[in-house]
Every structure is written in C-alpha cells, then in structure tokens.
Amino acid sequence: MDPNEERRSMKALKAHFDTLHFVTDSMQGIQERCACGQRLVRERAPAEVFDCLPGKRFFTCKEYKDDGMHYRQPWVRAVEEELGFMKMRLEKCEEYKSLVVKLEVENQELKAEVEKLLA
C-alpha cells in the first residue's frame, strides 16, 4: 500500500472517530436537535424487539441510522441527566441567594456607619 494513501486513510479514520466521540460526548440531558441538525422524536420500542423491554422510550433522531452519528438516547437516562443538571443549578442558586443575604447585611452595616459619620 502506498504510504501517502495509508496516511490519508488513517487521517480519515481518525476524523471519523473524533466525530463519533463528539456526538457521544454531546448526548447529555434532553436534547432538542441531533448532531446532524434533525429534530428528535420520542419513540417507543416495539414489542418485537428483544434487546430491550417492550415499550421502552427513546429520544431518537428523525433520520436515525445506526452509524453512531445520530442520537438515540434512552428516555430514562436523558431525564436523569436533566434532573442532575437542574439539581446543580438549584444548588448554585441557593449559594448565590446566601451570598446576596450576606451582602444585604453588610450593606446595612455600611449604611449605618455612613450615617454615624455624617451625624
């Protein structure tokens, strides 16, 4: 095999595997669109499919092909991840709320000091 052709082939395979990695890495939470740009639909596994429970729900790309470039994510996993994201956001909001309360108390103390200095 020609070394240049082999190099081009390896680069193409590396680019393909990098894209697969990016697609799988981006499958977190409930997505609205697939990596290919198509919208995701909610589907249920038919009763004839034996690799999963009948009626198992998925978020699936409208143009889904089993090539790794399209989303087909179990509904349960997507919802669990989304709840995890929401929980982290809630914890950050509570942290910010406690900081706001501290700043309000400090602000009141500074206002009292300014009033003493002006009097």
Rank of each mutant, 00 (worst) to 15 (best):
R89I: 06
I30V: 11
H16F: 05
Q73A: 05
K102W: 02
N107W: 04
K11W: 09
S9R: 14
D67T: 03
E81G: 07
R42S: 08
R7N: 12
C52K: 09
L20T: 08
V101G: 13
K111V: 04
G29N: 06
E81D: 10
A47C: 01
W75C: 07
D18K: 02
E63A: 08
E63N: 13
E48R: 09
S26H: 12
K97V: 13
A47G: 00
W75K: 01
L90S: 11
V114E: 00
S9E: 13
Y64T: 00
Q73S: 01
E113F: 00
L117K: 07
A119G: 11
L118E: 01
N107C: 14
R57E: 13
C61L: 03
Y71Q: 04
E63G: 05
L90P: 03
E115T: 00
E95N: 11
L99C: 12
C93F: 10
R8I: 01
C93H: 14
L20Y: 13
E95Y: 10
F58T: 04
E106D: 15
E113L: 10
R72M: 06
E6I: 03
K92L: 09
E113V: 00
F22R: 13
W75T: 03
E6S: 09
C61R: 01
E113K: 09
D2K: 03
D67W: 04
G55Q: 06
Y71A: 08
D66V: 07
E94C: 09
M27E: 13
K56A: 12
G84T: 10
V76D: 14
T19I: 10
N107R: 15
K11E: 15
M86R: 12
Y64S: 02
K97H: 15
M88R: 14
Q28N: 14
R8F: 15
K62P: 01
F17W: 07
C93N: 12
F50R: 15
A15N: 10
T60M: 09
K116C: 02
F59M: 05
E109A: 08
A15V: 07
A35Y: 11
T60P: 00
